[in-house]
Design a protein around this nucleic acid. Sequence first.
DNA 1: ATAGATGCAAATATTTTGCCGCCAG
DNA 2: CTGGCGGCAAAATATTTGCATCTAT
Lengths: 162, 162
Amino acid sequence: MSGTPLHRVSTGERINVNAASGHLQRELKARRIRLTRQRRVVLQVMESAAHHMDANEILDLAQKIDSKITRVTVYRTLDLLKGHGLIDELDLLHLRGHRHYYESHGPRDHIHVACIQCGKVREFESDLYEELKRQISRDCAIEITVTRTEVGGLCAECRAKA
Amino acid sequence: MSGTPLHRVSTGERINVNAASGHLQRELKARRIRLTRQRRVVLQVMESAAHHMDANEILDLAQKIDSKITRVTVYRTLDLLKGHGLIDELDLLHLRGHRHYYESHGPRDHIHVACIQCGKVREFESDLYEELKRQISRDCAIEITVTRTEVGGLCAECRAKA
DNA sequence: ATAGATGCAAATATTTTGCCGCCAG
DNA sequence: CTGGCGGCAAAATATTTGCATCTAT
């Protein structure tokens, strides 16, 4: 895993430096997982994501690249990636209904901080978070493979308006 | 809010000291929210919960108390409680499918630590977590109203078996 | 060649909504 | 009394599965 950083902006949009680097494709290849035409397309969509996407958005984008891709394949590919720990599944505190969002993750975990009013999502990294995970791992005697932290509240902007 | 502690055991079962104390009912009354027969039953189920429940389990338990309660009422009541911040909604990392789990929460947030193998869920409290939230609040200029942290991994027991 | 992937359609699962009669306050 | 609530049925959403066919390796 390269130490390539993930750049974040306050709108929740993401500029993934790994974009188009074929990072996910390399990971699958290393695991000897069959790379089909359809999978390549979904991987490309995930890698070039500008924000968290739900299955429907991923399907739409994938079909722009290759119109023959079906929803079922998207679900199956997301399951595959999730199973190998290459993407995370979030629900952003259900602020926008009960759909699920997916993102390919960089080398370091981040926290999702969402405004319950305007819906903006910001990604946040913290050494304290890393320390907390170490504490959990030690105290619960668990070998952590996946973590997810979502925080909701009122952002400064929305508080000013109120 | 009382400072009544929440006792935790490693199986993810909960012994909520607030159980049967009518805690939720008092909260609703204070907000001048109509207390119907059905709502009382759902509140009772939530308060005496021994573990995280999905909507279906809540319905089953509620119907044991009053067989005339419908699924729709359960959903509407859960929405009501969620909207007032009296219960939390989790998905436990989708370890058991895509359902949602609900729990009435005590005065202090806790982290859910789940084994991806055996499915046991343990609740974990930590000062470090409180500190992390303060950091997020400060650095993101957000007034936090809800947080959720879920951690998955292999518990000691499952690692021993492998 | 062949294990494993895809596509199609249908099945599941979960949650939400419209409408009307009923009840808590 | 009356506005909010619950029940029913149906809709909307989201995800999964069986099976025949195709394809990456």
